[in-house]
Amino acid sequence: MDLVFFAQDCINGVLMGLIYGLVALGLTLIFGVLKVINFAHGSFIMVGMYVSYWAVTLTGLHPYLALGIIVPAMFLFGYWIQNLLIRPIFIAERDVREPITVIVVTTGMWYVLDNLALLVFGPDYRALSPNPLKGQMLNFGEIFISVPKLYGAAAAVATAGLLFWFLQKTRMGRAIRATSLDRDAASLMGINQWKIFNIAMGIGTAVAGVAGAVLTPFYNVYPTVGIPFDVKSFVIVVLGGLGSIWGALVGGVIIGLVESIGPIFMTSTWTEAIVYGLFLLVLFVKPSGLFGQKHDW
């Protein structure tokens, strides 16, 4: 009996962990390429969730089919933000590779986006409707597997795989990696670094949109929904290694398992302490994270 519950918690931990990984993926990508620490990441997730919510509510599409609307919309949103808000700072601080001012700007974006959502959508907790995945469970005796989370975990792996292939194999992906290694050298090779930045930010935001679409079928949407995910994303990204795609997924799964299995042995408030303890431990022992590059480029 106990083993059944253990298995149950493990399955939930892995599924939820992969989804956490997907949530953190946009953050790690934006850091990896732009060297921008995006404090507004949670708000991007929130925007992604509202975009998914409205895309599904207005069209009546299946939430995963609505990705066809969500991904381009979020890509444009990220592209526009980079072009209008972050690029001027890169231009102003041309000699600095990681302009600190950007942190202030992304923090500002976080507040503006969250409060804008509050102003426009109100403080209500919205549930997706129509929601064909709502409450769907696979049932194996005593073991329940949540279908929306299963879909979400699959989407996480697929997104990570696609992103990996894109960065490794396509011409644009190579240009993005070149820019992330050395902006000036890339520019000398004829790469338009501003365009690459815009695109990289667009992709990172689009991934946040995918995360939003994955979350809405089993999570309510409200203006500050990004905050708990924001904190979690930072822990995951540091754990897995800043800029590493697979690191984000592995970091996510570790957190998911701690959160899920931990409560068997203690009250669930303590699992948070373990998560943050792990975070500190990684910073002390292996600051580059599990899959991060040891040396700065």
């Binding site: 999570y219 409560p263 669930s268 408030t269």
Partner: peptide, 18 residues
């Protein structure tokens, strides 16, 4: 069962399993 949980929890499945 006497189980506190953080109000900001993103997943309450572990609590529900308990």
């Amino acid at each position: 069962l006497d189980e506190p949980y953080p109000s900001t929890a993103t997943d309450l499945t572990p609590v529900v399993n308990k």
